[in-house]
């Protein structure tokens, strides 16, 4: 048992310690993990926003009818007829006077009598998943009910949803770039360590070490260093994210805090960093061994 541990310790020690490279690797891994936390937070928050905007708002639209009192009923009926015949419209609801009063109350105050005001009639449209053709509907409404105006929220919402989706993509691309930069950095560090220890590797090969033994000695070291650094960086990054104002303040910036299952993605940062270090060091070691018999 102690012999096993002794051997394992020795396997790690065949590569001479290099405090400076070790600390640099650790620091860079920590910095990268810290950045990755923010890239992820940005991406997740943007994704959440895009989803909410498109699901909460995208599926409804309104038709507003302003007509002289005598024509109101006829035009409303015409609008409903047109809507019911329009593909992509799932449901049509004519708002009652009480509904409208409730809508207006916050602005106009309670006890308001709608009869005394030229309030337009509102018709709510619930879209089906595929949505309707707004331009075609507008033309038909114009023909059938000249007082009807289609208010299609998704017109002005669309660019926002697209922007949020693009922001999410940017966050993901940043996270990938950070992983790639980590790989590049570990490759440079491993290359330099392998070059500095070329003589050690030669001695090990000459006394009968397999390539796998030598690779393991380097890979072990760099993977552990990176894992340690990434753990620290992730922890610091997440603390910083948690210190941001929480949800409730409203707006995008306050929505950066992870929610529910999203924590899982942050927990992936240290193991993914370690995996990147593992692969980068392995490739570097295989390359270095090619020139040594």
């Amino acid at each position: 048992m102690t012999g096993g541990r002794r051997l394992k310790g020795a396997a790690d020690r065949v590569v001479p310690p290099s405090g400076f490279t070790a600390r640099l690797t650790q620091f860079t891994a920590a910095a990268m993990a810290f950045l990755a936390v923010f890239a992820l937070a940005l991406s997740l928050a943007a994704g959440r926003l895009a989803e909410r905007w498109s699901s909460e708002l995208a599926r409804t639209a309104t038709v507003r009818i302003s007509a002289p009192a005598g024509q109101m009923e006829a035009q409303t009926e015409a609008v409903v007829r047109v809507l019911e015949a329009t593909p992509g419209v799932a449901r049509v609801r004519v708002l009652s006077a009480a509904d409208e009063q409730a809508l207006l109350e916050p602005w106009l105050g309670p006890g308001l009598s709608l009869e005394s005001l030229p309030v337009p009639q509102l018709v709510e449209i619930i879209e089906s998943a595929e949505g309707f053709d707004a331009t075609g509907l507008r033309l038909r409404l114009q023909a059938e009910a000249p007082g009807a105006v289609l208010d299609d929220h998704s017109r002005w919402r669309q660019p926002l949803v697209a922007a949020a989706a693009r922001l999410r993509m940017l966050g993901l691309v940043s996270a990938l770039l950070i992983a790639a930069a980590t790989g590049a950095m570990i490759t440079l560090a491993a290359d330099s360590a392998l070059a500095a220890n070329r003589e050690v590797i030669r001695v090990l090969r000459l006394i009968g070490a397999r390539d796998s033994y030598i690779i393991r000695a380097f890979v072990h070291r760099f993977t552990l260093r990176t894992l340690g650094g990434a753990l620290l960086g992730t922890l610091l990054g997440m603390s910083a994210v948690l210190l941001l104002p929480g949800p409730g303040g409203g707006g995008f910036l306050t929505g950066l805090q992870p929610q529910g299952a999203e924590w899982f993605w942050y927990l992936l940062i240290p193991p993914v960093s370690a995996l990147v270090a593992f692969l980068a060091t392995r490739l570097a070691a295989l390359r270095a061994l090619r020139g040594i018999t």
């Binding site: 012999g3 096993g4 020795a10 396997a11 065949v14 033994y213």
Partner: peptide, 14 residues
């Protein structure tokens, strides 16, 4: 002493 034992070590022998 560890240098002398190194061939055993790399051969995973105790």
């Amino acid at each position: 002493i560890e240098n002398i034992a190194l061939p055993l070590e790399v051969a995973a022998r105790r």
